[in-house]
């Protein structure tokens, strides 16, 4: 039974691609709106050959990575501060809780007003999306550190002023890492919003242009690329996360 499962699993994507190819070529749907995988593949190859693929990929990845790093750094620092110090939490948490649920895409019009069409605007959107996720996980992680660990540390002579670096940060690390991993996915979502806010290069930008020119093959190729890099990023991060939380 297990072998049958593995066989079907391996055939899943090829079968889907064949079905897609047949349906698209059969004339049941408009070939312009729903091109077969072969057409998509050709469009992607052309995109790569022209060199535009790499500049688009570079532009998108730069935005995602820079936004992630800035948003994560801010999120961790503020999460530790609000988690550890009640006064800071009373001041900032209500504000963050209200701002957090606003989806970055809703900010696009105001970002264009504030930042014009510059990179800063796109970065702002990615940072916004990443920051709140990482902040919340860090805040919760710091608060949820096992009180017993702190009492044990106190009885072993750990001074209270050293508790943060000795116990709390490592105790909160598993939660922080979960927040970071979620933020990786979120940074790709916000990338879509960011590149819709007037870009001149990038994967989503290319999808936009292709859609306007009814190059559906290119659109699908762009979407597939987006999905693929998001998937790879998540996998890489999860492997990294396992190594960071070495004791689990």
């Amino acid at each position: 039974m297990k072998r049958l499962n593995i066989l079907i699993g391996a055939l899943s994507i090829p079968l889907f691609l064949c079905a897609w190819e047949l349906v698209a070529r059969s004339g049941v749907v408009n070939a312009v709106l729903f091109p077969p995988p072969s057409v998509v593949a050709v469009a992607v190859l052309e995109w790569v050959r022209s060199g535009q693929f790499f500049s688009d990929l570079g532009a998108s990845l730069t935005r995602v990575v820079t936004g992630f790093v800035i948003g994560a750094a801010l999120g961790i620092v503020l999460g530790v501060l609000t988690g550890q110090f009640p006064l800071v939490s009373s001041l900032l948490s209500p504000l963050f809780h209200i701002l957090r649920p606003i989806p970055p895409i809703a900010f696009v019009p105001i970002v264009i007003l504030w930042f014009g069409l510059s990179e800063a605007g796109k970065l702002f959107l990615v940072v916004w999306g990443v920051f709140f996720t990482v902040w919340l996980s860090t805040h919760i992680g710091v608060q949820k550190v096992d009180r017993g660990l702190i009492r044990a540390a106190l009885m072993l002579g750990t001074p209270r002023r050293q508790m943060l670096q000795e116990i709390v940060l490592l105790g909160a690390l598993p939660y922080i890492v979960v927040g970071l991993r979620t933020a990786v996915s979120i940074s790709f979502y916000t990338l879509v919003a960011a590149e819709l806010a007037g870009a001149f290069a990038g994967i989503v930008y290319r999808i936009e242009i292709a859609q306007q020119n009814l190059q559906t093959g290119q659109v699908m190729g762009g979407l597939a690329t987006l999905g693929l890099i998001s998937f790879i990023a998540d996998r890489l991060f999860s492997a990294l996360a396992e190594r960071t939380v070495w004791w689990r």
Partner: peptide
């Protein structure tokens, strides 16, 4: 010194490092 009902060992430290924590402090 105190021992609690739950061991409350520091999960990120090995047995040796856990025991060495007090002297280090």
């Amino acid at each position: 010194g105190m021992v609690f009902q739950q061991p409350h060992l520091f999960p990120w430290k090995s047995v040796r490092r856990n025991i060495a924590h007090g002297p280090r402090m």
